[in-house]
Write a protein that binds this DNA or RNA. Structure first.
Length: 598
RNA sequence: GGCCCCGUAGCUCAGUUGGUUAGAGCGCCGCCCUGUCACGGCGGAGGCCGCCGGUUCAAGUCCGGUCGGGGUCGCCA
């Protein structure tokens, strides 16, 4: 080793020791006759005193040094309480420049971090400099701990870590695939997996019984703060289990993860049905850090004279203290609602004397006005927002309004952790956006994915009422974020075929797309199920990061662009030719992709 | 694909009703400085105001388009 100690761990107890340190010049304070260097390595910072002006003068920020010297107590009154090493300093008797540094695109030293935030674009373009800073670095280090903690739980529970292919076959449904040309089969393409879903099920057929993988997944979709084209899941699958077994294991994992940041999750984590979540919070991922539940008023307004409320669903959410908002603020709420595709957001204010105000109030009947405050649970000074129309759309709007109210009124305890399992989701949803599609129209698609089993109660009867059939699936939600989800899978070929039928996937199509899986299932597939955790999102939550970009070593920016490498980039004509990108598939007939190996 | 916000020095930003030579802090370069820790002092360099077009006597500023970034809705089984 080029060093004997790490800089950041030196303490008063080390006084008198001669050490050799290596690291970067964080800052330099040159007084002519004496110079102070803040030497930084991964453990922290220590002050180095250089008395030789010739040595100290040419040093610059981020030069890489090897310093040998004696640990010494700082002179009386010169301690720095902001540094762990603030009691001591290293009196250098040898300073070797291991490498120089060009002037920096941004300041790496975080001494002034509180005042200046560097833009994300430039940080990502020089991510290797960004990661020298303790804040960004700590997120990446936490991620390593998170991986280790999960592996420990799973290893102790007898799981086998198995890698699955990243060059695989494009499967229908779901997100857009990233595709890779196959040089040896021009015109044919691999797809990068959206998740290891099919492989992990095959591993259950293979008798591995307990599988996990920290798996990279790829989806060619548009961006969000919490979405990257490549992202990571902790992927888990188990044989001979039911829902409670998977949930119990998942809770063990979550407990060990949150323990890393000193939070104790109390198990069992509460469960809520999907129907309840939608009814009370207007979303399948409710943020339970605050109350403010939606109030269903369809019956209350059953005979209303107000046309807008003559709708299949009427609901409301209360904004505490919202009654005193100025008119333009309410106009802003209308705009907010319109941006989410709603016609508007009706509201009623409740004055301190209980009098109702706002443009909607006068449209209500006497009786409706009289009972409204009690019906919605409002207080004087509040306002009540209403949504009326289709149930799903109205609830979604109210659910979004609830979150917005929570944020604006600071009802959310940002230090809280609130976990909930959302269970009993529907198995199917109507295809297309219109949820009024008549049952029996035949157009159903899987809510989760095509291999999710119906719950035991529905397994024999789901065809009779696909819209009501429940899936044997579960999502784990933390502070309004879905951080994982899974299901018990279908392991019987006949059930699988019936599910395909409801979804309108014919036998031929099923054979072509999932033939290898269906065949595997014909050889004694064990009952199995599993879960996948959104690893980036979990680490982002644990590190209190705003974006998953903060917990990915080299994230992409908008448009899938990597500001560091410049990927994606054009390829040469030679590469195009070799890769077979431009190969024209032969017309139909035998040109079909070869059947999976039998 | 729709909508919103942002593009001015290496970084973070200011820039008046359109009006002389576009500023500040930090950083950078040079000199000075023996107890600093966001050290300090003196001096200096550094700008296609994202790009293209328009309006105007005159555009960083107004208008249209475009590119890039961020957010959001659609989308993401």
């Amino acid at each position: 080793m080029l060093r004997t100690h790490q800089a950041g761990i030196l303490r008063a107890g080390d006084i008198g020791t001669t050490v050799t340190l290596t690291g970067w010049v964080d800052r330099r304070r040159d007084h002519g006759g004496v110079a102070f260097l803040d030497l930084r390595d991964s453990s922290g910072i220590v002050q180095v005193v250089v008395r030789d002006e010739e040595v100290a003068h040419p040093l610059r920020s981020e030069f890489v040094l090897q310093v040998t010297g004696e640990i010494s107590a700082r002179p009386e009154g010169n301690a720095n309480p902001n540094l762990g090493t603030g009691e001591i300093e290293v009196i250098a008797n040898e300073v070797l420049v291991l490498n120089e540094s060009a002037p920096l695109p941004f300041q790496v030293s975080t001494a002034i971090d509180a005042q200046v935030t560097v833009g994300e674009e430039v940080r990502l373009a020089h991510r290797y400099l960004d990661l020298r800073r303790p804040g960004p670095a700590s997120a990446i280090r936490l991620r390593s701990q998170v991986n280790r903690a999960a592996r420990t739980v799973l290893d102790e529970a007898g799981f086998v870590e198995i890698e699955t292919p990243t060059l695989t076959r494009s499967t229908p449904e779901g997100a857009r695939d990233f595709v890779v040309p196959a040089r040896l089969a021009p015109g044919s393409w691999y797809a990068l997996p959206q998740s290891p879903q099919l492989f992990k099920q095959l591993l259950m057929v293979a008798g591995m019984e307990r599988y996990y993988q920290i798996a990279r997944c790829y989806r060619d979709e548009d961006f969000r703060a919490d979405r990257q084209p490549e992202f990571t899941q902790l992927d888990v699958e188990m044989s001979f289990v039911d829902q409670d077994d998977v949930i119990a294991l998942a809770e063990q994992i979550l407990i060990s993860l949150w323990k890393l940041i000193g939070y104790e999750i109390t198990a069992p984590i509460p469960r809520m049905t999907y129907a309840d979540a939608m009814r009370r919070y207007g979303t399948d991922k409710p943020d339970l850090r605050f109350g403010l539940e939606l109030v269903e008023l369809t019956d209350y307004f059953a005979d209303t004279p107000f046309r807008v409320f003559q709708a299949p669903y009427v609901g409301a959410v209360v904004m505490p203290g919202g009654g005193s908002q100025p008119r333009r603020q309410f106009d802003a709420w209308q705009e907010w609602a319109k941006q989410r595709g709603a016609k508007g957001l009706a509201y009623v204010t409740v004055a301190e004397d209980g009098e109702l105000g706002g443009p909607v109030a006068k449209n209500l009947s006497e009786a409706e006005r009289a009972g409204l405050v009690e019906a919605v649970g409002a207080q004087p000074g509040d306002c009540v927002f209403f949504a009326a129309g289709k149930q799903s759309e109205s609830r979604a709007l109210l659910g979004a309004a609830r979150l917005e109210i929570g944020r604006r009124q600071e009802l959310i305890d940002e230090s809280a952790w609130s976990f909930v399992w959302v269970v009993d989701a529907p198995l199917f949803k109507p295809t297309g956006e219109d949820d009024d599609v008549a049952v029996g129209g035949g157009a159903w698609t899987a809510v989760h994915h095509a291999f999710t089993s119906p719950t035991p109660e529905w397994i024999d009867t789901f065809e009779s009422d696909p819209g009501s059939a429940l899936a044997y699936a579960y999502d784990i939600v933390c502070n309004g974020n879905e951080i994982g989800g899974g299901s018990i899978r279908i392991h019987r070929k006949d059930v699988q075929q019936r599910v395909f039928e409801v979804m309108g996937i014919g036998q031929e199509e099923a054979e072509e797309k999932f033939g290898f899986l269906l065949e595997a299932f014909s050889y004694g597939a064990p009952p199995h199920g599993g879960i996948a955790f959104g690893w980036d999102r979990i680490v982002a939550l644990l590190s209190r990061a705003d974006s998953i970009r903060d917990v990915i070593a080299f994230p992409k920016s908008g448009g899938g662009y990597d500001p560091l490498t410049g990927a994606p980039a054009p390829i040469s004509p030679q590469q195009r030719k070799e890769a077979g990108v431009d190969a024209k598939p032969e017309p139909k007939g035998e040109a079909q992709a070869p059947a999976p190996a039998q």
